Measured scan of single mutants.
Amino acid sequence: NQASVVANQLIPINTALTLVMMRSEVVTPVGIPADDIPRLVSMQVNRAVPLGTTLMPDMVKGYP
């Protein structure tokens, strides 16, 4: 099973992602692959992302 990117904390709308905000976890449904975490750094979320939420491609501005 492939690990996905999961919010490690509440991420407010328009926040630029940092490594501490994300963790990898095997979840269903599958979200953004954990391998993409380095690419996500400094990209902004377009909505508030609660703790434990799987990051989906449509939540991150400019992804992929």
Rank of each mutant, 00 (worst) to 15 (best):
V5M: 01
P64Q: 15
E25T: 09
L10D: 13
I37S: 04
M22G: 01
A16H: 15
V41N: 04
S42R: 07
R39F: 10
V49D: 02
V45T: 14
T18P: 00
V27T: 09
M56R: 09
V5N: 00
I11R: 00
V30R: 15
I32K: 00
N8T: 14
K61L: 13
A7C: 04
M22H: 00
T54E: 01
R47P: 02
P33I: 08
R23T: 09
G31I: 01
G62T: 06
V49M: 06
D36A: 13
P12Y: 06
Q9H: 12
P57C: 05
S24C: 04
A7T: 10
M59R: 03
M21D: 05
G52D: 10
A34G: 14
T18M: 14
A34R: 06
V41E: 08
L19E: 08
V20F: 14
V5C: 04
P57F: 06
Q44K: 14
I32V: 08
V60K: 00
S42D: 15
T15R: 06
R23W: 04
P29F: 04
L55A: 02
M43C: 05
S4E: 01
M21W: 02
D36M: 13
N46Q: 08
P33E: 05
I37W: 03
M43L: 13
A7S: 11
V27D: 02
Q9F: 06
P50S: 09
Q2S: 15
I11P: 01
R23V: 06
M56K: 10
Y63A: 05
R47F: 08
L55M: 09
R39E: 08
N46G: 07
M43S: 07
M21E: 02
T54C: 04
L40Q: 00
N1G: 13
P38V: 10
A34Y: 09
I11G: 00
V6N: 00
S4Q: 02
N14Y: 10
I37R: 07
S24R: 15
I11V: 07
R39C: 05
A7K: 01
L40T: 01
T53R: 13
R23A: 09
R39G: 12
R39I: 14
G62F: 06
M59G: 03
D35I: 15
T53H: 08
A34E: 07
Q44M: 12
G62C: 05
L51M: 14
N8M: 09
K61A: 13
M59T: 05
T53A: 13
T15W: 05
E25D: 14
K61N: 13
I11S: 00
P50E: 15
M56Q: 10
N46C: 03
N1R: 07
M43T: 05
R47A: 09
A3Q: 10
Q9C: 04
D36K: 11
S24W: 10
Q2V: 15
V45P: 02
N1I: 15
T28F: 14
T15I: 08
I13F: 12
S42M: 15
P33R: 15
I37A: 06
M22P: 00
Q44A: 14
K61M: 12
R47L: 12
G62A: 08
M56H: 09
N8Y: 03
L51D: 08
P29W: 03
V49T: 04
T53G: 13
L17G: 00
A3L: 11
R23D: 05
A3H: 11
V26H: 11
L55R: 00
R47M: 13
N1L: 14
Q9A: 12
L10Q: 15
A34H: 07
M22V: 07
M56W: 05
L40P: 00
Y63M: 06
G52E: 04
V41I: 11
V60W: 01
T53D: 09
N46D: 13
N46L: 13
Q2M: 15
D58I: 15
A48F: 13
Y63C: 03
G31F: 02
D36I: 07
L55W: 02
N1Q: 14
S42L: 11
L40K: 01
G31Y: 02
V60T: 01
P29V: 10
S42F: 07
L19F: 11
I32G: 01
L40E: 01
V26G: 04
T54R: 04
L10K: 08
I11Q: 02
D36N: 15
T54S: 04
R23K: 10
I11Y: 00
M43E: 05
I32A: 02
R39W: 07
N1P: 13
V26C: 04
T15S: 10
I37Y: 03
V27G: 03
A3S: 13
V5A: 09
S4H: 02
P50R: 11
I32R: 01
K61C: 04
Q9W: 07
L51Y: 15
S24N: 08
P57V: 08
A16Y: 13
N46Y: 07
S4C: 03
V27L: 05
M56F: 13
P29K: 04
T18A: 07
L10R: 11
I32L: 07
R23M: 05
V20Q: 15
V6E: 01
D35Y: 14
P50W: 07
P50N: 10
D36V: 09
N46V: 12
N46I: 15
M59Y: 08
N14F: 07
Y63I: 06
L10I: 09
Q2K: 13
G62R: 07
N46R: 09
P50F: 07
V30D: 15
Q9T: 11
V6D: 00
V26Y: 07
A7W: 02
T15L: 04
L17D: 00
V26R: 08
V49I: 12
A48W: 11
T18I: 07
T28H: 13
P38Y: 10
I13D: 14
I13Y: 10
D36L: 15
A3V: 07
S42V: 03
P33C: 04
K61I: 15
L51V: 10
T28V: 09
Y63S: 06
Q9K: 10
V49Y: 02
A34V: 09
K61R: 15
L17I: 11
N8S: 12
M22A: 00
A34F: 08
G31M: 02
P12H: 09
P64L: 15
N14Q: 09
N8P: 01
M21Q: 05
P50D: 12
P57L: 05
G31V: 01
I13E: 15
D35H: 15
P38T: 10
L17E: 01
R39K: 12
L51C: 05
R23S: 08
L55I: 14
T15V: 09
L51S: 12
T53K: 09
V20T: 15
A48R: 12
R47I: 12
M59Q: 04
P38G: 12
L10G: 10
T18Y: 03
P33K: 12
T54I: 10
M22L: 13
M59A: 07
K61G: 09
G52T: 03
V49S: 01
I13G: 13
N46M: 13
G52K: 04
L51K: 14
V20R: 08
D58E: 13
S42A: 15
A48H: 13
R39A: 12
I32F: 03
K61Y: 12
P57M: 06
V49G: 02
A7V: 09
S24Y: 09
V45C: 04
V5R: 00
L51R: 13
R47N: 08
S4D: 00
V20Y: 15
A16T: 08
Y63R: 05
T18R: 10
L51A: 10
R39Y: 11
L17Y: 02
V30S: 09
P33D: 11
V45I: 06
Y63W: 14
Q44S: 11
T15H: 09
T15G: 07
I37L: 12
V27C: 04
D35V: 14
L17T: 03
A3G: 09
N1F: 14
V49E: 02
L40W: 02
P38S: 11
S4T: 04
L55H: 01
K61V: 15
T28A: 13
P64I: 14
I32N: 01
L40D: 01
I32E: 01
N8Q: 10
V41C: 05
A34T: 10
D58G: 14
V30E: 08
G52Q: 03
P50K: 13
G62Q: 07
V60Q: 00
T18N: 07
N1T: 14
M21N: 10
V60R: 00
D36Y: 10
S42W: 12
S4A: 03
I37C: 04
L10W: 08
L55F: 10
T53F: 11
V27S: 05
M56N: 06
P38F: 11
N8F: 04
V60M: 05
V30C: 06
V49C: 05
Q44T: 11
D58N: 08
T28M: 15
L51Q: 11
V6L: 08
I13Q: 14
E25K: 10
I13P: 10
N1S: 11
M59N: 06
M56Y: 12
A3P: 09
M21Y: 06
V60C: 03
P64E: 15
M43K: 11
A7R: 00
L17K: 00
R23N: 08
D58S: 14
A7L: 03
Q44C: 04
M21F: 05
D35L: 13
R23Y: 06
